[in-house]
Design a binder for these strands. Sequence first.
DNA 1: TCGATATTTCGGCGATAATCGAAATATGAC
DNA 2: GTCATATTTCGATTATCGCCGAAATATCGA
Lengths: 115, 115
Amino acid sequence: MNLSLPQAVDRLSALAQGHRLAVFRLLVKAGPDGLPAGAIAREIGVRPNTLSSHLSILDHAGLIHARRDGRSVIYSADFAAMRGLLGFLMEDCCGGAPEICAPLSGLMPACGAAA
Amino acid sequence: MNLSLPQAVDRLSALAQGHRLAVFRLLVKAGPDGLPAGAIAREIGVRPNTLSSHLSILDHAGLIHARRDGRSVIYSADFAAMRGLLGFLMEDCCGGAPEICAPLSGLMPACGAAA
DNA sequence: TCGATATTTCGGCGATAATCGAAATATGAC
DNA sequence: GTCATATTTCGATTATCGCCGAAATATCGA
């Protein structure tokens, strides 16, 4: 299923903020296992309530997923969503010469397949 | 040269707006030859002064380049900048298992090599 | 149940962003 | 030089964003 432009804007907006981008990259680095909200807050250096707002935005954009584990909530990156966004950005690249840029389409094969 | 986080935020912010995203995708589709500002305004359906503001933001973020041709100003996508952004987003993907996501690193080979 | 830890929700404040109309600048044709 | 076309700059208005402190919710252990 292809991304709509408003969906792509939502995802890009979610990433277009320093703290949220840092959070997302941290989760990309962490892989499918993810990290608890508290650890993210400590690592990024942001208050828990502010982080919660950021996580909510990333979640609503579909870029990360939350799952509860005891008192903690574990967040992990959704790699499929990211792949969809990258594909959307490069769609129809170079018009008549797609073979130049098309290699992007089949990228980032599995990588945990989100969560 | 690797991207800094603030630079990446600038690029993502530039793309995180409906009209600007539409403009960028149009220029990606157009390829290295680019399009004059007027044609972009007509295609996207936005007033020339508003478009100019958007183009300025995309240009300042390094995602597009401008060159003058007579009375027109031709804008074209900077594919190298885009490649840099994608690489930044997926840096250190999945931590210990980079071979799963790494294929992203060497992507989008030339595609006009910007301008 | 009570207290401690982990996270989220709420209300408000200051800063930033998107758009507009009007005017200014740049280039080419006559 | 004068006019028309193409694009940009300016100033103002309205809406949205990011942060905070305080309070609420959820889970676990004693």
